[in-house]
Design a protein around this nucleic acid. Structure first.
Length: 302
DNA sequence: TTCCAGGGGTAGA
DNA sequence: TCTACCCATGGA
């Protein structure tokens, strides 16, 4: 095992814990939060097949990164590790227009003031897409079970029982019956396998989505064409691609909207969409920020 | 036992 | 475009 230390510089409007706890992803392996050390950890799979366990903690204007790796940590590997972490924490994403818009609304000034807005994502679109499928029509606890089981089934081994997120190639090699029996993904199993097969075969260049020049509605239709990804999953996956034009409604946020705006009374989805339409291309992010505002009032890490 | 979770696909109107 | 029906799983 090889060890190294590195640092990541962060944008002036970045807040580490608000990014870590921006949604549930930090609780899904191979991310995990070490509350004792006050750190976010992540096991990365590098291009050469080596593995790197990274522990990130907040510093002054930069992040401290402790790395343990199966391969010597030369400059090439350290640079790749940094690139992957920058992707995860959205350190290269310019949210200044979003913050400027939020400052124009007194109700939302807390967002730029607190550094909220960056949504944690995986190093790869494939991982985000599989996980998003695993959030559909089930409880969050079942999502955690499915993701953990998938990793335990075909994730590359590191140490201490840790495994990387499976590659499309490894996932594509699983049978439907195996995924049903061991991942417990139920009817989602063929969707996960089909997605993995399309990505592994090169028929679907899913990793290009983050740098796509397509208009958002066209990208939405492309994402939506993946079996198992509907309006909810596509809307939320788009947020992880840096597009915030869709709300991605589910039972959890609907209940939260009813509670915040309608005294608990149910309303149609169109009413929710109309409510946020004034925020234009940022509406999905304004929406998510408002739904999760109470998280921002808590002391991190919680 | 029944219901429902951070829904989605499909067939038929 | 809209609606009914079906789909695995686990927790309450």
């Amino acid at each position: 095992m090889f060890s190294a230390h590195s640092t990541l510089s962060t944008p002036h409007d970045f807040d580490f814990w608000r990014t870590v706890y921006s949604h549930g992803w930090c609780a899904l392996p191979p991310f995990w939060v070490d509350k004792v050390r006050g750190a976010l950890s992540r096991l990365l799979l590098l291009e050469d097949g080596s593995l790197a366990s990274c522990t990130l903690s907040d510093g002054k204007g930069r992040l401290s990164v402790q790395i343990q790796s199966t391969a010597k940590l030369d400059k090439v590997r350290k640079d790749e590790i940094k690139r992957q972490l920058v992707e995860c924490l959205r350190l290269g994403e310019d949210l200044s227009a979003f913050y400027a818009a939020a400052k124009r609304h007194p109700r939302y000034r807390w967002i730029p003031a607190s550094g909220a807005g960056r949504l944690l994502r995986a190093p790869t679109v494939f991982e985000d897409a599989v996980k998003m499928i695993c959030t559909t029509n089930c409880s969050w606890s079942l999502t955690e079970i499915m993701v953990a089981n998938l990793i335990a089934s075909v994730g590359k081994k590191f140490a201490d029982g840790l495994r990387a997120f499976p590659t499309p190639e490894a996932t594509a090699g699983l049978s439907d019956s195996f995924v049903r029996k061991h991942v417990r993904a139920g009817y989602r199993s063929p969707y996960i396998i089909e997605l993995a097969e399309r990505v592994a075969s090169g028929k679907l260049d899913i990793e290009s989505w983050r740098r796509s020049a397509l208009p958002t509605d066209e990208l939405f239709r492309l994402v939506r064409s993946v079996k198992g990804i509907g309006d909810y999953a596509a809307g939320n996956l788009l947020k992880l691609l840096g597009r915030y034009d869709y709300l991605g409604l589910d039972s959890w946020v609907r209940a939260r909207f009813y509670e915040l705006h309608k005294n608990g009374r149910r309303v149609a989805d169109k009413t929710i969409e109309r409510h946020y339409s004034r925020f234009g291309k940022w509406r999905g992010l304004f929406f998510w920020m408002e739904m999760t505002r109470r998280w921002a009032d808590q002391k991190f890490p919680f």
